[in-house]
Design a binder for these strands. Sequence first.
DNA 1: GCGTAAATTTGCGCGTACGCATTTTTCTTG
DNA 2: CAAGAAAAATGCGTACGCGCAAATTTACGC
Lengths: 218, 218
Amino acid sequence: MTTPPRGLRERKKQATREALREAALRLAVERGPDQVRVEDIAEAAGVSPRTYNNYFASREQAIVSAVTADREARIAAAVAARPAGVRLADAVTEAVVEQYTNTGEREHKALLLITTRTALRDAFLDTAAGIEPPLTAVIAERLDDAEAHTARVLAASVAAAVRIALEGWLRPAGKAEAAESLAAGGLVVPSGSLPDRLRTALAPLAPAFDAAEQHTQP
Amino acid sequence: MTTPPRGLRERKKQATREALREAALRLAVERGPDQVRVEDIAEAAGVSPRTYNNYFASREQAIVSAVTADREARIAAAVAARPAGVRLADAVTEAVVEQYTNTGEREHKALLLITTRTALRDAFLDTAAGIEPPLTAVIAERLDDAEAHTARVLAASVAAAVRIALEGWLRPAGKAEAAESLAAGGLVVPSGSLPDRLRTALAPLAPAFDAAEQHTQP
DNA sequence: GCGTAAATTTGCGCGTACGCATTTTTCTTG
DNA sequence: CAAGAAAAATGCGTACGCGCAAATTTACGC
């Protein structure tokens, strides 16, 4: 086999993880986020409540991870898939936009749910940090190995930018925003689509990527 | 008075906040981090346990914030204090290094304590994110107001880089590290001083700062 | 000063997060 | 394939985080 037969254990773990994810999301949609207890999710997935907490550190994480799934790995793969010729900055940007845009009907509904609760919103934003490790690996591959630090910093910066883009995107245009924007004294872009927001947030990092690339191939 | 008389309330809040901080750190040092309950901290500060949680969302936050204090504001002030002529990237880097280097004897002891518990370590690393808002403000001031997004992204990237530097700095050189570094296939810098780590982590972002500055003054 | 509106503190209660010790399941080795 | 090692699931107990509503404190106008 291509994958070493370290399999049955790993498979089962992934299975329960996914079962918990699905159960969490389904129940949250059915009865509303506040009417779901950990006990319910665990029961629906066929495990004990204690085991639930071996997989997810909070109730919000499980719900959110049903939407996030393995987006991190897909982003890294998408970057690696781009031809070696293109600018690294572009490769990363397009990969991120691509993976955050392929959103199905189910995900859309889930996002609506997420915006309704602050705790869920925060948990969702935190998932952006998860792209750092795989991004670090794939960026390091395109740079000199001696600049492993650089890859890490760039990946973390991308994660931070993505977080900012998401934060602005799913912000409820409430009263606080108007006051805040006036206090800042400037006119801010009201809303905009997610791809636009992602590109705008990532753009300032492009020069850093360019410089890193220059260092490896003078 | 120089400060508008919005005072007694605000002052009292700050007082209790600091009392909680100090009590938390003192008790943690005295009896060890695991032998301190929130009830103890609250009592030592003369408030109810419930009030404690109005100030800090976790026991770790209180302890850590005694070390962190108002470092965020000081960093922003340090940046603002630099003459307008110097490169923005340099101003930020030096301000960060400066504020993380001025560490007293008390802080050093506290850091030793923090490294002993994973939860404390994580809470400490999370405080790095706190520099984003003030940094955003001071960076935006040096850039065109139209590029408010840029300032935010740069500030968040700095925060991410600082976090990485701190993470590597207070990592316990345990068994996991050796294995990991071998798996990565490269030779990694073993330890290094904190200023060095901060500079190294921030260096890759310099081109992004330069580019942002260019846009404002062509 | 005095009364009223606003902000803060507090007690209560529920569900959660996790360390620890034990049991059950999966992997390895001869 | 059996026995032991390794890993994961489970039960239990404790402390925590926080929403909510009542009580207390502070601020402001008259």
